[in-house]
Design a protein around this nucleic acid. Sequence first.
DNA 1: TGAGTCGGACTCTCAAGCGT
DNA 2: CGCTTGAGAGTCCGACTCAA
Length: 275
Amino acid sequence: MSSVERNQTPDGDDLADAQSTDVQPQMTVHPVGGYSSMPMHMYPFPPGLVPPQPLRSKRRQVKNACTNCQKACKKCDDARPCLRCVKYGIAEECVDSQRKERKKGVKRGPYKKRDGKGSNVDINDAPEQQSMPIPPGMPPPSASPPMPPYMAAPVGYAAGFYGQFPAPTTPKPGEAPAYYPQFYITHVPPPNHNGHGQDGEQQGYAQPAQFYPATFLPYAPQPYGPYMVHPHRPDAQMAMAAPQYAPFPQLYGKPPSAGGSHENGRSDHARGDDN
DNA sequence: TGAGTCGGACTCTCAAGCGT
DNA sequence: CGCTTGAGAGTCCGACTCAA
């Protein structure tokens, strides 16, 4: 894995050590193995706009990983097919795993009282907005612009990649809201290509015909496009403002890596099943 | 170098227990 | 009856190995 990708893990975990003040792209990101033909530049937030967030956010899990991700112990997402299955060309095998029914009648000892209040409060759950000045003309995060479903794509997807993504998870009371990563993403003007990226990764993609107007990125260098950090994405996951890609079925006439069912032959790491 | 494997830390969910 | 707590069940990070 490249260092670029490492700095942009789905959870955004490794973003924190990038600190720079000049507005130069610090990295170029190809969203998830080339699902998008457009490399992204990532810019650091300007000083004072970097939210004083802890280095790691609480890990988020999908409610139900697909069978493939489950077997591989890899991160899944709520979309079906999930990103990983699409990446490995096994989208048609991407189905929810079956959850076992929880045991009932398990007896428990007497409760221990937890120490009063606050002990349960994760500092990561603290509202993040207070130190995040909102530029003039920008709606406050709570009033962030209506987010069309296609913008709620799982991380790494070019939003609009699928049409069926669940709406962005608005934090429930007491739930950790999303925080703003230290980078925002902006579009890198395509360098005069003929629709062929490296590794033939863009087969089956339509070039984005248009961009949505920027709604959140006051600091994006103007010539560049309107990519935005998804304010609702937990774990600093980012989604891009949607270039108009075709929905999934048209996108992949052929999987990006024509490999086929990779991990299916796995000797199964399903542990502790059946009881 | 990228993909597969896997141990185990971490998170989520929900039933049992508790307080009112 | 609603809230709290504990623990079962599941997710996926990150280290490691292996093959191309």
